[in-house]
Nucleic acid binder design. Structure first.
Length: 229
DNA sequence: GCGACAG
DNA sequence: ATCTTGTCGC
C-alpha cells in the first residue's frame, strides 16, 4: 500500500507495477487548450539497434510555426524494459529524459511518436512524458492501440472520433489522401482540438508530420552509424 | 480459451 | 521497432 510516492521516479519496475503506476499517474494528467502561439516545438523518437540491446533516443527542436530546425540531441542507452503493448513509455522515457538534459533550447511543446490518452488506462507515452517533464505533450501514433471509430474517408484533412469505453480519447486523422490515418490524442497540458490542430499544421508533403519525420530520420541514422543531417 | 496489441 | 525484394502507383 501507499506505493504512489515510492514508484513516482523509478523506472526499474515490473510490468505489473508499471500498470499500477499508470493508473495513479493518469489522474494527474491535465487536459486544457494548448495555445498555438508558442515558439519552440520538440519532436521525440527512438530507434533500436539490431539485437535489441541498445536504443538511440532523439529529440529535435523546431522554431514554430515555420518548423525550421534548431537543434538535435541524442543518447545511446541500453534497453531496460521489454516491449509490452500499453507499457511503451517505461521502455522509452528513461532515454528520452537523458536526451532532454542535453537540450539547450527550452521547448514549449512535445510531439510524441505514440499514443497520449488513446491508451487502455488513458496514459500513453505522450501523457507520461508530458507529466514527467511538466511540459505540454501531444501524441501522434501511426497505428491504433485501442478504441473504436467509424469508417474514415481517406481524404486529406478528414478525421473521426476515437472512442474508448464510450469516451472520446482521440481522433483518427487522414493527413494525406489515400494513406493510412494517424491516431492523435492529447498527452498533457493539451486537449483534443488543439492537439489535432498542432499535428495538422505539422503535416507537409508526407503522411508523417515533418517534426516526427526529422526525428525518426535522425534516430535511424544513428542506428546505422551514419551522420545526422 | 481466443484474438488484439503504440514502438 | 527490426528483419527484408520487388513492385504497384502517382
Amino acid at each position: 500500500m501507499g506505493s504512489g510516492q515510492d514508484l513516482r521516479h523509478r523506472w526499474d519496475l515490473s510490468p505489473r507495477e508499471a500498470v499500477q503506476l499508470q493508473k495513479e499517474l493518469a489522474r494527474k494528467v491535465v487536459l486544457q487548450p494548448l495555445p498555438l502561439d508558442f515558439d519552440v516545438l520538440a519532436a521525440a523518437d527512438l530507434s533500436y539497434f539490431k539485437g535489441g540491446t541498445y536504443l538511440a533516443a532523439v529529440i529535435v527542436t523546431f522554431r514554430w510555426p515555420d518548423l525550421s530546425p534548431i537543434e538535435t540531441v541524442h543518447v545511446k542507452a541500453p534497453v531496460k524494459f521489454p516491449y509490452v503493448p500499453g507499457l511503451l513509455s517505461f521502455r522509452e522515457i528513461p532515454a528520452l529524459l537523458e536526451a532532454f538534459q542535453r537540450l539547450r533550447t527550452r521547448p514549449d511543446v512535445f510531439l510524441c511518436d505514440g499514443q497520449g490518452l488513446a491508451h487502455p488506462r488513458k496514459f500513453g507515452l505522450a501523457c507520461h512524458l508530458g507529466l514527467v517533464l511538466d511540459f505540454p505533450a501531444v501524441g501522434c501514433a501511426k497505428s491504433r492501440l485501442c478504441g473504436e471509430h467509424p469508417p474514415l474517408e481517406l481524404r486529406k484533412g478528414h478525421s473521426v472520433p476515437l472512442v474508448l469505453n464510450g469516451e472520446r480519447v482521440g481522433s483518427v486523422y487522414c493527413s494525406r489522401t489515400g494513406v493510412k490515418p494517424l491516431y492523435i490524442s492529447p498527452g498533457h497540458l493539451a486537449d483534443l482540438p488543439s492537439s489535432e490542430e498542432l499535428v495538422s499544421r505539422c503535416v507537409g508533403r508526407f503522411r508523417i508530420p515533418e517534426p516526427l519525420r526529422r526525428a525518426h530520420a535522425a534516430a535511424t541514422a544513428l542506428r546505422e552509424g551514419r551522420a545526422l543531417t
